[in-house]
């Protein structure tokens, strides 16, 4: 933790502030617009970014992100464009922690050692692979360490102490806490034992516990922090805002700016 960009969110949390790490899908609505969206989020105070890659079979994502991913792919998105995206955002925001969420098959297809090194070289900080549970983390953990990338893991309401123990040896950056059983999306029903879940997670891991899945409003974000979250990730709502802000090939920043400020003020 000490030498990575995640130290920034760690320190902020230590000082009593919650963090906001919105999700951006690369290539949606197009590559330039997604870069513009990321910059807008950063300009308005996002503490970090979670970056998604369009994938045809996103089993851990909901219909909004799936539809956006298909749109990006139909428009010709190629995985190599991620290098351009991260290089650009990194030079724009030298200290902001950037976490890539990628399905495992994309990494496999791009040859893990080459792909992970290339991502680290342009300034990526960590990688979250939703379909790579800790049982299989050894498949690529050594390569992430060699490249200098943290592996970020998901904890769900069903994860018990035995799951935590499996995750611990590999976990870096932060813990992505799934706050409801289901998939990413904008439903606002949370697991009832949320406070207990965050308490257990924070007792076990020395990493920030960031809430994701099913969060879209400032009220949702506040509820999460009240229940013990160190910060929130919002995804599907950002996709919707990008869609609404995209006119004639240009992304206008007003909606995303207002949203980011609203969430940050609520935290």
């Amino acid at each position: 933790m000490s030498n990575t960009r995640y130290k920034y969110i760690h320190d902020k949390i230590q000082n009593g502030h919650a963090v906001y790490m919105p999700y951006v899908l690369i290539g949606y609505p197009d590559l330039d617009a997604s870069i513009a969206a990321a910059k807008t989020l950063i300009d308005n105070g996002a503490d970090g970014l979670e970056i998604g890659i369009p994938f045809r079979d996103p089993v851990a994502d909901g219909p909004v992100i799936e539809a956006a991913a298909n749109h990006a792919l139909d428009n010709g998105f190629k995985v190599d464009q991620i290098i351009t995206f991260i290089r650009e955002i990194r030079s724009y925001a030298p200290t902001t922690p950037l976490t890539l969420m990628s399905y495992y098959n994309i990494i496999l297809a791009k040859k893990p050692d080459i792909f992970l090194t290339a991502l680290a070289n342009v300034g990526l900080d960590g990688i979250l692979i939703p379909d790579l549970p800790p049982e299989h983390a050894e498949d690529i953990y050594p390569l992430t360490q060699k490249a200098g990338l943290e592996m970020v893991f998901i904890v769900a309401p069903t994860s018990d102490a035995s799951r935590f123990a499996k995750i611990t040896p590999y976990a870096g950056g932060f813990i992505y806490v799934v706050t409801k059983m289901g998939i990413t999306g904008m439903q606002d029903q949370y697991d009832q034992n949320l406070a207990a879940l965050f308490k257990t997670i924070k007792a076990h891991f020395a990493l920030p516990a960031i809430a994701g899945f099913g969060i879209s409003t400032a009220q949702n974000a506040q509820d999460m922090v009240k229940n013990g979250a160190d910060g929130v990730i919002i995804g599907s709502k950002i996709i919707k805002l990008c869609e609404d802000s995209y006119k004639e090939g240009k992304l206008s920043p007003a909606l995303l700016s207002a949203h980011t400020q609203e969430i940050i003020n609520a935290l």
């Binding site: 495992y104 379909d131 049982e135 893991f153």
Partner: peptide, 20 residues
């Protein structure tokens, strides 16, 4: 019983599914 047949098989599923 980790479900491997050589390099194939396994349990490459989201965390929420692993306990079930």
């Amino acid at each position: 019983d980790r479900g491997f047949f050589g390099r194939y098989g396994g349990q490459y599923s989201p965390e929420a599914l692993i306990p079930i």
